[in-house]
Amino acid sequence: MSYFYNKNLKLHYDVLGSGKPLVLIAGITCDNNHWSLMKSELSKSFQLIMPDNRGVGKSDTPECNYTVADMAADIVALLDNLNLDKVSILGHSMGGAIAQYLACYYPERVEKLIISHSFIKFRASSIMFCQHEYLLAELNASPEIRATAILPFIYSDDFIGNGANVQALINAIATTKSKQSLDSYKQQIYAISEFNSMDYIQKIKAETLVIAGEFDKLAPFQDSQEIVNKLDNAKLKIMAGAHVPMWETPEQYANLITAFLSRSVVVVEQHISQYPNPIIVNAGDVVITGREDSEWIGWVFCTNIQSNVSGWVPQQIISVLTVERGIILEDYSAVELNVLPEQQVSIERELNGWAWCCDGEQRGWLPLEKLKIAKD
């Protein structure tokens, strides 16, 4: 549990994973548990920095109204606290508004930008939805009433057409203690109501991916198209589902994000794995360590004591216990991709002459010498 300060506000954040830094900015009412179904997958490729916006989760609530600009300044203070000059940003819904402001007014801090299920100006009908949700909370409405009123606006028909999904959400509403006060919710409604980037959004120069939901009612895909039309270096991806892909389709959402942020390369030589039963280890596992690879420096031949499966493990994730024993520091899979020449893949991580790649459906290791930078 980590905290930083922006002026007199104490603000909470979590960090997970290693790799290039990616800041995840959640939407209205949401703390950083917003990312709970996809953070494990994303953290395999990136260092995730997940703040609680002011007024939600474990962060302080100001005594007066605040704006999207204020929340963007919180993110800059967080980057300063972590000594990070430049990061990629993913903002969802209200978080997308914060991300726009960051990219416009702090362009030197933004590497790549993802604006997800967001808008240039929040629609009047969407503001009314938030006000309605606020009133239900103020009236202490039952979980069933709140679910009936809220879910059709943020989930797709396919998702809420499944009774098990609806019951799970009702149970979550009933058992989860609110992490935002009514005053704070009112302040966030004010911030999102006042936001309008029409006069400055064209200042965004960072490479940008804009993501929309096909059936999103709060931020219809036309709002995302409007954003793309204003930018010189942006592309639009419309996903199946509605407003919350991190809950409806977390795996597909994570794959889309990873593909955009990763380096695209082309296979120049066929690669077929010679290890049909690759070693897989988890953080904390003890392995028997053997010889070091003479061709690929930095790889150690290990045997997983629990599974008795052997294979090559990067030296960087092994903490030496004894001469022939080591403990694994992070989850690792030695799976290799089978690829053909001219096939395009995305590099998510490079290590000791190899790259952890995604071909759009599967992930695995490939030798860097069999890859070249893809041309747009």
Rank of each mutant, 00 (worst) to 15 (best):
76 V>P: 08
298 G>C: 08
336 E>L: 00
114 I>K: 06
274 Q>V: 09
217 K>A: 08
72 A>Q: 01
319 S>I: 08
338 N>L: 11
173 I>Q: 14
51 P>W: 00
80 D>G: 02
206 A>Y: 04
277 N>T: 13
366 L>K: 04
64 C>A: 15
106 Y>P: 11
125 S>M: 14
3 Y>G: 11
220 P>Q: 04
115 I>R: 01
278 P>M: 00
20 K>A: 11
160 I>H: 05
99 A>F: 02
154 I>L: 10
237 K>E: 14
358 C>E: 12
5 Y>E: 14
166 V>Y: 08
103 A>Y: 03
246 M>W: 03
309 V>T: 14
42 L>H: 03
83 N>Y: 11
354 W>I: 05
225 Q>H: 09
202 Q>S: 15
222 Q>D: 15
349 R>F: 13
281 V>L: 04
78 L>G: 02
233 N>Q: 04
273 S>F: 02
321 L>R: 09
110 V>E: 04
47 Q>P: 00
56 V>A: 04
233 N>P: 06
356 W>M: 09
279 I>Y: 05
93 S>M: 04
267 V>I: 11
236 L>H: 06
4 F>A: 01
197 S>K: 03
105 Y>K: 10
374 A>Q: 12
195 F>I: 07
273 S>W: 02
275 Y>F: 13
6 N>S: 09
331 D>V: 09
26 A>S: 14
334 A>M: 05
149 A>T: 10
376 D>G: 14
132 H>N: 15
227 I>T: 00
151 L>E: 03
317 I>L: 09
1 M>N: 13
136 L>N: 06
152 P>K: 10
335 V>S: 11
5 Y>C: 07
116 S>I: 10
282 N>L: 13
44 K>F: 10
363 R>D: 09
167 Q>K: 15
203 K>T: 08
129 F>K: 13
69 A>E: 14
42 L>A: 01
169 L>W: 07
28 I>W: 06
206 A>C: 06
133 E>N: 15
219 A>H: 02
225 Q>E: 12
293 D>I: 07
362 Q>G: 04
92 H>V: 13
108 E>A: 12
99 A>I: 07
314 P>D: 07
73 A>C: 10
274 Q>G: 12
319 S>V: 09
